[in-house]
Write a protein that binds this DNA or RNA. Sequence first.
RNA 1: GGUAUCGUGGCCGAGUGGCUAGGCACCGGUCUGCAAAACCGGCUACAGCGGUUCGAAUCCGCUCGAUACCUCCA
Length: 488
Amino acid sequence: MENKLQIYNTISRKKEVFEPINPPFTGMYVCGPTVYGDAHLGHARPAITFDLIFRYLQHIGYKVRYVRNITDVGHLENDADEGEDKIAKKARLEQLEPMEVVQYFTDRYHANMDQLNVKMPSIEPKASGHIIEQIEMIKKILEKGFAYLSNGSVYFDVKKYNDNYQYGKLSGRVLDDLLSNTRILDGQDEKQNSFDFALWKKAQPEHIMRWPSPWSDGFPGWHAECSAMSAKYLGEHFDIHGGGMDLLFPHHESEIAQSQIANGNEPCKYWLHNNMITINGQKMGKSLGNFITLDEFFSGSHASLEKAYSPMTIRFFILQAHYRSTLDFSNEALQAAEKGLKRLMQGVETLQKLNSSATSSNDISKLSGNCYDAMNDDFNSPIVIANLFEGLRIINGVNDGKESITASDLEILKNLYNTFVFEILGLKNEVENTQFELVDGLMQMILNQRQLAKTNKDYAASDKIRDELIKLGIVVKDGKEGSSWSIE
RNA sequence: GGUAUCGUGGCCGAGUGGCUAGGCACCGGUCUGCAAAACCGGCUACAGCGGUUCGAAUCCGCUCGAUACCUCCA
């Protein structure tokens, strides 16, 4: 099998061997959330996808600088009144300062990401903190003649750009098609062509979030922040740019155009896009109003949810699908993920207690190789998980005395599971460790009492203990060598 | 309408020319005072129709269906 990491590059539409520009250093920029509402399941997908990529790149030895932005300015409400900043609108409704809203939802986003065991990026820049950089970039584009001023706003001249470069090379679009298919919107009359996009937008009087610029008091266009901030922290040409597939056009396409003009080259070498999470076959998204927030998943407080699902269940659910496939949400699918994860975690625990013998009845290194091959093949986490389940058969077999394993193979196996389950997939055991010993001690006492009752054939008493425990959410399992327990 | 992606067993999902993942559910079995859990085993699908090939879920064509984007909708 291929030993090198291959990643699917959206711009070439094929898998390519990953070769960083300046190894072992690797720069990765991912479009982060717009903090004007609670994070929903759709937000979890890119976060977990690029967390997986971040973790794996580090694991195989790259020194990664991972930049994920916070968008806190500049986006318009599509159903809103006139050209109003999303953040500003929410702020007025709730009588809060815009930055207070930003802070509130940023904190909540961080809390959710922490629950999902998503590592913090190396740098998390905010658009509002980089207005100067964005203005400087716009100046450069104006100087080079690829933008024009119109009524205090600055627009990128897509037609001129397309005469010299290729607008649409990332998304596969042809400018002529765009021309004939663009809808009529207000504000369009400021533009020379409907497909031109704003670099700087003059603020309306009611617009609270505004900054001074050479052209007007206003705010930067949607695409400006990512170009400006990625260039600042990763350089004008870096390795990986990621984000959701819905950002392909026009966002990323426009980033390419801006960077090409401002910096003289395309921003990055590899474009990675995660697919959407669907609900009843449809994209889960803010604008469709069919989203379920992460907090609702964790608490089960949503009409579509049959029960609460833990953060690790959500994480495992997402990792069980390849990041470039759509993933369909359903209670059944989540419950399947929940049970599968539990089985996997119990297998990991069993693994720690295994005894070795003189021979191995299984090829452990092959299993290990399979896992790395899967990750090297465009981060194929579902295949990794399938192999880990395959390994479970070995683990349980050894535990049952039906299979054998040598001490060195056992070490490899333990190492493999620790590496992949916890380090790379980023899963964690959700049982609270600090309290575990105490609870376990208490449980042993209780189980001993129950065993005593059973020995005396006082089954009424032993069943009562079991039933009481079930009410507390603790399941007793009677095995060959005594009873054990687990939290449901 | 344009661009792109996709259609896999009851459900979720891998897989790109032969070796026919994995999970959940289901059915058997082991264990057990009973139950549950756990473990073991079983379950052979690839939208339809043509074509290429010794051989196709995998390549090509057509048909049907779905989704995303085409708006500063992140």
